[in-house]
């Protein structure tokens, strides 16, 4: 602490010692800083409060006109049509279809990548592959959307010519690739935390690398791996641009990935681009769907947190 001394008053006209000089000022300064920092940390709480308040407040307006029952169980979503229908199930189905498709792509690839990186790859290889996967995670979703619509979709349509131009499958594939780095890096972290002694014990019993990886390391890291799966799925449910660009805008209940679907996120994005008059029920659908989306992702994230905390194997 030599720097602040220059700004302290000289002790010549003061009977106090060096140590006492400016002490009050320094302490009041200390209090001010403390208050400022608490205020900064309150912003994160206020953000959550703001999100929940905004979603709930506008949704209350929405549910004053549309019954909760109709919203949750209706199978037709046509809020912008002449004959309005507010059943959120088609959007929810769309989101779940795309997210499960993406999970189907991402979970095996991500887990296998994690096993490779943590159990097989030599240091040199890992130093190359990990940054590449990180780049994959850093590509803007709108660029992924471009790739899905203008590269993957034509490719799919050469195999299945009757696929829609906007289809769930291309969004699933590209979104799956997008969340691979999330699965692989989190799973790899979990596997790296498994102590070496466990692996060596298995090797000493004559296990092969495959057996060590699948019967020792993966079970030991299972909580982390499942948590990474859930986080990836929640990310897929909340992802917007890929589905807005490539999956279409047709809210329908279908399990056929070659059809066009609309997800909750795509509905919010596509609807908010048009000029919706503030305060109408159409405007409020954004918030009702947003609230549903928020609840679904929060639920998945919380389950992931519980898995991580409750089922973690702790090693010394």
């Amino acid at each position: 602490m030599t720097a602040p001394r220059a700004s302290l008053p000289t002790p010549a006209h003061d009977s106090r010692s060096w140590g006492e000089i400016g002490l009050e000022k320094r302490h009041s300064n200390e209090r001010r800083i403390g208050i400022l920092l608490i205020a900064a940390s309150a912003v994160s709480i206020l953000t959550t409060v703001g999100i929940v308040a905004v979603l709930v407040f506008e949704s209350i307006g929405f549910f004053a006109e549309v019954s909760v029952w109709e919203f949750l169980t209706g199978t037709r979503w046509t809020p912008l049509f002449e004959s309005k229908s507010f059943g959120v199930l088609p959007l929810l189905m769309g989101s779940l279809l795309v997210a499960s498709g993406a999970a189907l792509v991402a979970l095996p690839i991500g887990l296998a990548s994690a096993i490779y990186l943590s159990e097989y790859a030599q240091d040199g290889v890992r130093r190359v592959l990990k940054p590449v996967l990180e780049v994959l995670a850093g590509i803007p979703t709108v660029v992924y959307g471009y790739f899905a619509l203008l590269y993957v979709t034509p490719l799919l349509r050469t195999v299945w010519p009757n696929a829609d131009i906007f289809n769930a499958a291309s969004a699933c594939i590209v979104m799956g690739i997008m969340i691979v780095p999330l699965v692989s890096s989190l799973s790899e972290d979990a596997m790296s935390a498994v102590p070496r002694s466990l692996r060596e014990g298995a090797y000493a019993l004559g296990a092969t690398r495959f057996e060590v990886a699948t019967r020792t390391v993966v079970p030991a890291a299972l909580s982390g791996i499942i948590a990474s799966f859930l986080l990836a799925i929640s990310r897929a449910i909340g992802e917007t641009m890929i589905v807005t660009i490539a999956a279409g805008a047709t809210p329908q209940m279908t399990l056929n990935p070659l059809r066009s679907v609309q997800t909750m996120t795509a509905y919010i994005a596509q609807t908010s681009m048009g000029e919706l008059p503030h305060g109408t029920v159409e405007y409020r659908t954004i918030f009702a769907v947003g609230l549903t989306l928020f609840c679904v992702t929060l639920l998945v994230n919380m389950v992931s947190g519980v898995v991580l905390r409750r089922y973690r194997e702790v090693y010394e």
Binding site: I45, I51, F57, S234, R235, A269, F287, F294, M302
Partner: peptide
């Protein structure tokens, strides 16, 4: 606060957009 931050990190970006729109 820490739990809240962890949860905020998992909120979809479009939900922040909704917050921005309203707030």
């Amino acid at each position: 606060i820490e739990m809240n931050i962890a949860n905020l990190a998992g909120v979809p970006s479009i939900v922040y957009g909704i917050l921005g729109l309203a707030l």
